[in-house]
Design a protein around this nucleic acid. Structure first.
Lengths: 336, 336
DNA sequence: GGTTGTTGTGGTATCGCTACCATGCGGACT
DNA sequence: AGTCCGCATGGTAGCGATACCACAACAACC
């Protein structure tokens, strides 16, 4: 008896209560608010829990309390070291506070978000994290009705609720400025086709144009970025590489590919071709030659986003601090 | 009115039913078993759902039906391309079948699994995926009581329930055999400190010993693997690299690091040092020189694991096919 | 000593949905 | 024509927990 189908052991809170000689409510308190129960009672209940192997049913608890202790998160991919680090720190921070993260991958296809948001909201998460600041009307509508805290990351702009991100166009411009200060006159940029990579490309191109520089190539490769795409793009650019050129890549993977291909064709880096990547992957620091890149603390984004959600869940009201821009920095290495 | 606290719009199934002029049960059927409702009724209900912006509460549905449509998954990390691919295909396959994956990262620390399993089982998942085949008694006990299908991946051995994996020691042995056929006499192996990497190392070392080869070094680096660790390990090995040596690395990251460091010190690859990695990351194929590695279809593991769970959830009984060994293959490139 | 306040525990209603059984209807059979 | 069957739909009773209020026991106060 008791081994109900599907249920974990079929042990319910009432069984624990009976075994410990208390009411179910008291068992619930031992689990959720132990400070409101005397030490002896708690000990007796805990013994019963251990003896019976009771695992509280959070589904029932969530329905009753209207708090699921789930945070939903949507990121485009986890194959990208930056998102990996971000998801890691986000999850970790929330776990320590007793929340579980329900992660969904949107890929780089646009239309999928509505569907994902709907599916996730069905679980009645207590909060949600979205990547990027561009969202369709259906998504915005659903989020408004859900009335839960929302944090957008990895971008800048007017947030639905809260935001932890950075300005991609500003990064492109900063890299261009860095190159200009090194007296570069000819430029190229390789970018993946996603919104934020394109913003970095735009910021770079605009700054170059304003300074009267020449942009000899600005191919868009598919998202997500790959090393092979960087190699291909550089091969296509070879004929134009007679003179000294500065190349900005929207990802360290593209930058690495470009450097490898340059090596194969005897193009001197950084003499003839200066290369700067983006993301600060280990690859950039540990390969030879190490290459210059833009670093953004992804782990911090995850942590900040989690903490902003937690503050709201603890009752904090919307505030100015709800928009955070994390800093970026150019890490100079042998490739520039 | 209606905008209940925390609830999505506060719209309940009864509201939709009233708006469509049917009973709540009929709305439920339109959502879950549309084939049992006439087309006209369904259309009317769907219109009401759209008009009210109704998002079904899966928490309540899960409690009532005792099916959460959640699959729990525990992997050590998502920073590793193999796990990334695996999680991707696993999630995708389950999503198409109407399930959501609840992902947890165990890191490479041992003790954490019990705690994670307990937290996940609280959500009453319909099935669970675990990485590795070694689990503590508490975990095994909880899983047994949960009475849900369990699939273990990435390892071999006697499974709790189902398994999709491969034999790590056999891979190490296969790489050793491959080197022996190329008349190598001196060997080295770099391995991360996790169970499965150590199994590959053991398989390699045993095969080498049986053939009378000399193992000149077998350092264990921390898990997860990094490029830097590969460089460091190779630097430590340099004094012993006067003669022709064959090196097996438990990860492509280590292999890449070793090759980079060999290049820096003028050690000819593959002339003096032959290198084989593991995992078939893009890095190995797209860097220069491209290097030999062992490939295992991670995506297939995820898909197979998902499909085995789905089969059980559709009512299939335990069967012989519940243990699947996926093949591996040595991909020969310029480094050997 | 009676009132008030505090603390620990218990009882009841309810969260939003689906399982289960009941019902009514029309068509196919004998 | 009467019976039976199948199908679409509806009513009721729970799923297992927690919110809310009630209450008993005891301490502290005037």
């Amino acid at each position: 008896m008791g081994s109900g189908r599907g249920a974990t052991g079929g042990v319910r809170i009432a069984d624990v209560a009976a075994a410990a000689g208390v009411a179910p409510m008291t068992v619930s308190r031992v689990i959720n608010t132990p400070e409101r129960v005397t030490a002896e009672t708690a000990a007796r209940v805990r013994a019963a829990i251990a003896r019976l192997g009771y695992v509280p049913n959070l589904v029932a608890g969530g329905l009753s309390s209207r708090r699921s202790r789930i945070i939903a998160a949507i990121v485009p991919t986890i194959a990208h070291p930056m998102f990996t680090a971000l998801v890691d720190s986000f999850t970790e921070t929330l776990r320590d506070a007793g929340y579980q993260v329900m992660l969904s991958l949107s890929g780089y296809a646009a239309g999928r978000e509505d569907e994902l948001v709907r599916a996730l909201l069905g679980r009645r998460p207590d909060g949600i994290l979205l990547t990027g600041a561009e969202h369709g009307p259906a998504t915005r509508q659903m989020l408004a009705e859900a009335a839960i805290p929302v944090v957008e990351i990895f971008d800048t702009g007017a947030p639905i609720d809260m935001l932890v991100g950075f300005d991609h166009a500003a990064i492109g411009a900063a890299v261009a400025t860095y190159f200009l200060e090194k007296t570069h006159k000819r430029f190229a940029v390789f970018a993946a086709g996603d919104t934020r990579a394109l913003a970095r490309r735009r910021g770079f191109a605009e700054r170059v144009a304003r300074a009267g520089g020449v942009l000899i190539g600005d191919p868009i490769v598919g998202a997500p970025s790959t090393i092979a795409a960087g190699r291909d793009a550089l091969r296509a650019l070879l004929p134009s590489l007679k003179e000294r050129t500065a190349l900005f890549c929207s990802s360290d993977l593209l930058a690495f590919g470009a450097i490898v291909e340059a090596g194969v064709h005897g193009v001197d880096v950084p003499g003839r071709l200066a290369v700067c990547g983006f993301g600060d992957f280990e690859l950039g620091a540990a390969s030879e030659p190490a290459f210059t890149t833009v670093t953004v603390e992804a782990g911090r984004i995850g942590r900040d986003a989690a903490e902003m959600l937690l503050a709201r869940l603890r009752g904090a009201s919307p505030a100015v601090a709800d928009v955070v821009h994390v800093p970026f920095r150019i890490v100079e290495r042998a490739s520039t």
